Amino acid sequence: MTPRYTGRHTGESERPAVRRKEVSPGARRWGKVALWVGLGVCAAFVVFVVASFLGVLHDFDHPGDDGWLCSSDSSTCRP
């Protein structure tokens, strides 16, 4: 038999059980709190970006008398 087939048929019906590290309920709770706080921060950032984008769109449609959108040859700005 070639070496690549050695050990494939050991006669065991199942894989040996893998022992997992036990996690305390307090650690699980803090993990969930951190997850929800992170999701809240991400949602707040998305709201901030959308509001900023809408503000820029409003500035493009309604430029003031002075500022970064008003140039000397613009027809939308007052002389």
Score class of each variant (00 low, 15 high):
R4L: 14
T76E: 14
P79Y: 07
S24Q: 02
V46P: 00
F48K: 08
V50H: 05
E14V: 01
L69G: 00
R15D: 05
L54C: 07
P3S: 15
R19G: 04
S52A: 15
G11I: 05
A17T: 05
K21L: 09
P79M: 10
A43D: 02
V49M: 12
V37F: 06
S72C: 07
R19S: 08
S52L: 14
V46A: 13
C77F: 01
A44V: 04
H9P: 00
S75P: 11
S13C: 04
D73W: 08
F53N: 13
L35E: 11
A51Q: 14
S52C: 04
R20M: 06
A43S: 06
W36L: 15
P63N: 07
S13F: 03
S75N: 12
E22I: 03
T6F: 13
S13H: 05
G38Y: 01
G40V: 02
S74E: 09
L54R: 15
V50L: 14
K21E: 09
L57H: 07
V49L: 14
A17Q: 11
C77N: 02
R29L: 15
R8K: 14
V46M: 06
S13A: 08
K21S: 04
G64R: 11
W68K: 14
F45G: 02
D59T: 11
T2P: 14
V18C: 06
R15F: 03
R15Y: 05
V46H: 04
A43V: 01
V41Y: 00
E22L: 09
W30N: 11
F45T: 08
C70L: 14
L54N: 09
R78T: 11
P63L: 07
P79R: 14
R15H: 04
T6H: 10
V41A: 14
R4Q: 14
G38H: 03
C70A: 12
T76R: 15
D61L: 14
V47M: 13
A34G: 09
S52Q: 12
L69I: 01
D61G: 08
G67Y: 07
G55A: 12
G40A: 10
C70Y: 07
V50I: 15
S75W: 09
T10H: 05
R29G: 00
V41D: 00
D61N: 09
F60Y: 12
T2E: 14
F53G: 13
V23G: 02
V46Q: 02
P25Q: 12
K32F: 01
A44Q: 02
G7Q: 02
G26F: 04
S52N: 13
P16T: 08
G40H: 02
T10D: 10
L35V: 06
R19F: 03
V47Y: 12
S52T: 13
